[in-house]
Design a protein around this nucleic acid. Structure first.
Length: 220
DNA sequence: CTCCCGATAT
DNA sequence: ATATCAGGAG
């Protein structure tokens, strides 16, 4: 298929998702770029719902980068325990905060290439912060985006970076930030990894992987 | 490719 | 009891 058709197809898919998910803010709770950075680091291999439970109290105790490095790593570990990988995350958050203070005047850098230099911040996390806190066009590729991009035939690859660049060539910049929200939301609410709910999927007709048998569980 | 780890669904 | 969810670093 020609590239032009692929782009038209992608646009069709995302325009449809846009009508179903008009609310496009992240599922993570935050009020500042710094909070979003911390929440997104915590969300690695953890559900956003769980992160929100932890940050509700965490953000009352820790306001500035300085607050995170003025406690022992063990104390921060206890405060983020239930998000999993707590030793590494505590270490990364403290490393992040040190770097923010030493290299960025205590502010979260807006530049993607600076963000990925922070410990615990990969392309996904950097894209979430750049896109949602600073309005810089970026596509956050999480596990849902990987799965749905393959199911929808945008790409045949599990490589996070390749998928990010593929979606970027398929979509106009104005779609970038929202595109990952739409795919992630759709992945979380309808197109589950286990039993995709194809019967109630609004883009089933467009989806090359549409399976009418999908999800008959429970309905005899 | 392996390690890091708890919460929840089945 | 066990599978599955969910990214980044070395």
């Amino acid at each position: 298929m020609a590239e032009k058709q692929e782009k038209a197809f992608a646009k069709k898919v995302f325009d449809k998702l846009a009508t179903v998910y008009p609310e496009v803010h992240p599922a993570l709770e935050y009020t500042t770029a710094f909070q979003l950075l911390i929440a997104t680091i915590l969300s690695a291999q953890c559900t956003d719902a769980r992160v929100n439970i932890v940050t509700e109290t965490l953000f009352k105790k820790y306001k500035k980068p300085q607050d995170y490095i003025s406690v022992a790593q063990e104390e921060l570990e206890k405060d983020i325990f239930s998000t999993g990988f707590y030793r590494m995350k505590a270490k990364n958050i403290q490393g992040c905060c040190k770097s923010l203070i030493e290299n960025y005047n205590g502010k979260v850098p807006k530049d993607f290439d600076e963000l990925v230099k922070l410990p615990g911040v990969g392309r996904k996390t950097a894209s979430v912060v750049a896109g949602n806190a600073f309005g810089i066009p970026a596509i956050a590729v999480d596990t849902h985006v990987i799965r749905l991009s393959n199911l929808l035939g945008f790409i045949d690859s599990k490589d996070q970076t390749k998928i990010e660049f593929r979606l970027k060539e398929l979509l106009p910049e104005s779609y970038w930030v929202n595109s990952s929200h739409w795919l992630a939301t759709h992945g979380r609410e309808v197109c589950f990894a286990r039993h995709p709910q194809c019967h109630e999927c609004v883009i089933a007709k467009l989806c090359p992987s549409f399976n009418p048998q999908s999800n008959m569980k429970g309905k005899k």
